[in-house]
Design a protein around this nucleic acid. Structure first.
Lengths: 208, 208
DNA sequence: TAGATTGTTAATCGATTAACAATC
DNA sequence: TAGATTGTTAATCGATTAACAATC
């Protein structure tokens, strides 16, 4: 159980968790690194190293006790104490994200959306509130928003980013296909739908 | 100009392109690796290495001629000959993707969506067709679909994946939060919205 | 020419994989 | 005990960074 965990390892952890939850449903109690490796198409040493970094319940000959391992993963991934996030932009993508129900099981609480257009204000299909952008400062002050999700058109993204930063939010997931400038202490992750797809397209071409 | 390009480099190329397009609009004709590095928060040697892998128009003292560099990037990224993609699942996320207009400038042509529910069949807001899943075999035969995008609920994703594979599509972008099994010659990219966000949340916690 | 900037070779860094001792 | 499986140390691999010669 070492102290530093690489971001590559962190990216794999949710997949281990998902797989373990699946096989637990099938009544399996213990699992070996080899079985996990085969199922997820990884190296078995890699699996052991990854798991060793967050858990110490692997036992020679027996493998890992699934329940404990799931507990360790959930604990490390913080899937219990919810983190609050809000969405900027209540267009199609924004509302799709607002009503997407896969976030909560990952410890994320998507609370509300903001849109500059007052006509969008109100409630989403699932009943979550949509506010106008003007209302952000007030709301940001009264609650602890950890993460902002940008789902506005590219041409407004930087502007919205500036507003987010001004309101003290330190982590941004950006769906707009532009590079955002922000102070260094703000973490920005770009989640460009088109680029992921383009990358897949390039790989496909390279394979031929 | 070497032959092998790492996937890390490939992920950065679209950002160079985007930045170059932006500054070309501002009337800039030449740009140095240093300027690009500062703007995109990368190392300048890394920028030079990345660019050298797809272009040979950098010149000492002068830098890169923006127009040629943009051309080289677009050519390499294949942003000219469009790749055809289709979406599975015409729910919120599926229709948001169907009507998302950022794909085309990345060389991607999102043509249509499929949904198992016949009530969803018809046209999207932007006028793209939505078919029932039954119609896939016929359509897949008559045209060359390169990429499938899975935007169905998690519990149906594997089932849809199997259908996609059966119909000869070799690249899948998966938005469902489950691991998919497919033959080795099928490229699968997982684009789990919740995980990206969860990862950001973990980083944020780690920083404190 | 001198200074700036490229492209490339070598050094460093980090992540993955292989080998193997520990142990159930 | 013998076999299986873990965790860890060492070796390999690949990507980033530093150093520097080439050159405009």
């Amino acid at each position: 159980m070492s102290d530093y965990i690489s971001s590559n390892t962190m990216k794999r952890l949710p997949f281990y968790l998902e797989y373990l939850l699946k096989i637990r449903d099938e009544g399996i109690v213990n699992v070996s690194s080899k079985a996990i490796a085969v199922a997820l198409n990884l190296g078995e040493v890699q699996v052991r190293k990854d798991l060793a970094s967050i858990s110490k319940n692997g036992r020679p000959k027996i493998g890992y006790e699934i329940n404990s391992l799931i507990g360790d993963l959930q604990k490390f991934l913080g899937y219990k104490d919810l983190t609050d996030a809000v969405i900027f932009g209540a267009g199609k993508l924004g509302t799709a994200l607002l009503d997407y129900n896969g976030f909560e099981e990952c410890g994320l609480n998507v609370l509300m959306a903001f849109d500059s257009n007052p006509k969008k204000a109100g409630k989403s299909d699932s009943g979550k509130p949509i506010y106008t952008l003007d209302e952000l400062p007030m709301i940001a002050k009264s609650m602890n928003i950890s993460i902002a999700i940008i789902a506005v058109p590219a041409q407004h993204a930087q502007e919205v980013c500036d507003i987010i930063v001004e309101n003290g939010i330190k982590a941004i997931l950006n769906f707009a296909p532009v590079h955002l400038d922000a102070p260094k202490d703000v973490i920005i992750k770009n989640e460009n739908l088109a680029y992921s797809l383009a990358l897949l397209s390039i790989e496909l071409k390279a394979k031929k």
